[in-house]
Simulated assay, not measured.
Amino acid sequence: MITMQYRITLPADYDMGLIRRRIAERGHLTDRLAQLAFKAYLFAERDVADGGQNLYAPFYLWHGTDGMNAFLGGTGFAGVVASFGRPDVQMWPVWQAHMAADVSGATHATRERAPMAARMPLGELREAEHARLRADLDRGALAAISAYDPMHWSVLRFRLWREAVEWPAGEDVDVYRVGHVSQPSNHH
């Protein structure tokens, strides 16, 4: 599995109603994408308590790279490029991904990136991340993903939540609202 995200930072005075409307009108278009485990249409608003800036930041979990490549080369991503320019797409190989059978009830998401301890063996780090993931599932996360970036040696922790929870503290933590979740496995 592989996960990806692009974060589009929008101006401070941007009408975020446009993003909410975009999600409402277009969110269903990814409900049946091949190899997609889920896509969470995420946004953050500058004036909301947990938002520091206006962001549109969809997050994807793919079963394989063929579906991801087809999406990035297709009309859906071309629409993003036409509206916002071509964003940097970050990708992380997945260590673990657990999700409820239906994650469409998610209203919030958290994304945390943290540097890897240089001296800790990857196996030990992976075990420690598994414990964090289990703890967040016990706290009510609908989806929990642990992944890593071997280029910058950092860990990614992504969670979908049914409601607002106590957010992780740290330098590189984003808190998002969820506008829509596409989960093709729920559409048979």
Rank of each mutant, 00 (worst) to 15 (best):
Y41C: 11
Y41E: 13
L42T: 08
L42Q: 10
F43Q: 07
A44R: 01
A44N: 02
E45M: 01
R46H: 12
V48F: 09
A49L: 11
D50Q: 06
D50N: 05
G51P: 04
G51A: 03
Q53R: 10
Q53N: 06
L55G: 04
L55R: 04
L55Q: 06
L55P: 08
Y56S: 11
A57E: 05
A57C: 06
F59Y: 13
F59E: 09
Y60V: 08
W62F: 09
W62D: 14
H63M: 11
G64P: 05
G64W: 00
G64A: 14
D66K: 07
D66N: 09
G67V: 02
G67I: 01
A70Q: 09
A70G: 12
A70V: 04
L72E: 10
L72M: 13
G73Q: 06
G73L: 00
G74E: 02
T75A: 14
T75C: 00
G76I: 04
G79E: 12
G79V: 01
G79W: 00
V81K: 09
A82Y: 01
F84M: 05
G85H: 04
R86C: 08
R86G: 08
D88S: 13
D88F: 08
V89M: 06
Q90T: 14
M91L: 11
P93N: 07
P93R: 01
V94L: 13
V94G: 15
W95P: 08
Q96E: 15
A97H: 12
A97I: 03
A97W: 01
H98S: 13
H98I: 08
M99W: 10
M99P: 10
A100Q: 14
A101G: 15
V103G: 14
S104D: 12
S104A: 15
A106M: 08
A106P: 12
T107Q: 15
T107C: 13
A109K: 07
T110P: 04
T110Q: 13
T110M: 14
T110N: 10
R111I: 11
R111K: 12
R113G: 12
R113S: 14
R113P: 08
A114T: 14
A117S: 11
R119T: 14
R119N: 15
R119S: 15
M120P: 05
M120L: 15
M120W: 03
M120E: 15
L122I: 09
G123Y: 06
G123L: 07
L125E: 13
L125P: 04
L125I: 02
E127H: 09
E127V: 02
E127Y: 04
A128P: 02
E129W: 07
H130C: 10
A131L: 10
R132P: 06
L133V: 08
L133C: 10
R134F: 02
R134M: 11
A135F: 01
D136P: 06
L137V: 09
L137S: 07
D138F: 01
R139T: 06
R139H: 12
G140S: 05
G140T: 02
A143N: 01
A143I: 01
A143D: 03
A144E: 02
I145S: 04
I145H: 02
I145M: 04
S146G: 08
S146P: 03
S146V: 03
Y148L: 00
Y148V: 00
D149H: 00
P150E: 00
P150G: 01
P150T: 00
